[in-house]
């Protein structure tokens, strides 16, 4: 059975049709907190891709040795270990971003995408497809994060990656940055809009 899975669909499905954030509704917590600016959103996305891919591979490698009754704890320990490593790396090589992300790097551990993928995929598949699945889901998560952060930074601060992009003449004509956009609740509304757009095209995802 495991042999028959198409690698292509394993990798590409999570990007849109099976997106972890807007379709499976997993990993929302961190998606909201770190998306006020593009830069932390991208770093967060990359961290999740790394943790997801490697934890998928590790769990997939040891999947036949794990005693069932402590399955969840084993998964948590592996994930937590990887998150700590990512956190230490960020502290050493991207100090400013890691300061902005603060506790949310730690919260990757409880990101439901991780536990969801480990349970649903890595526990029953071989390492290579698990790796692809991890990267694919991580990318799906990152795409949503980047879209949300793009709108929030553009409309909320008039900048992208910290550089001013809203032209001055707009401000001269009375345009103002929308302060509401940088407050956390607006991230939810932006995600809701993405869901709205995606489900208008993809009718079979709609709730009855």
């Amino acid at each position: 059975m495991a042999e028959k899975i198409s690698y292509k669909s394993v990798f590409f499905n999570p990007l849109s049709k099976d997106n972890p954030v807007v379709v499976q509704i997993l990993g929302i917590c961190s998606a909201l907190a770190v998306t006020a600016k593009l830069e932390p959103a991208i770093v967060m996305g990359l961290s999740v891709i790394a943790v997801l891919a490697f934890s998928n591979v590790i769990i997939s490698l040891i999947r036949n040795t794990i005693p069932t009754n402590i399955r969840i704890i084993v998964q948590l320990v592996v994930v937590a270990g990887l998150v700590v490593i990512v956190n230490q790396l960020l502290l050493a090589y991207a100090y400013d971003v890691s300061k902005q992300l603060s506790v949310f790097i730690g919260l990757i551990i409880t990101n439901c995408i991780l536990m969801g993928r480990l349970e649903a995929f890595a526990m029953s598949n071989r390492p290579w497809p698990s790796f692809l699945d991890g990267v694919g889901n991580g990318l799906g998560y990152t795409i949503i994060l980047v879209i949300v952060a793009f709108f929030r930074e553009l409309l909320g601060s008039g900048t992208l990656f910290g550089c001013q992009v809203m032209p001055q003449w707009l401000y001269n004509h009375g345009y103002e940055n929308n302060g509401l956009m940088i407050l956390p609740p607006m991230a939810l509304i932006v995600v809701a809009c993405i869901i709205w757009v995606q489900r208008s095209y993809n009718k079979d995802l709609q709730d009855k």
Binding site: T65, I66, P67, I70, I73, V74, V77, V78, A80, G81, V84, I85
Partner: peptide
């Protein structure tokens, strides 16, 4: 199993 796991992860960290 859990002891080995903890030792390995602890050492790596």
């Amino acid at each position: 199993y859990i002891i080995v796991l903890v030792v390995v992860v602890g050492a790596a960290l």
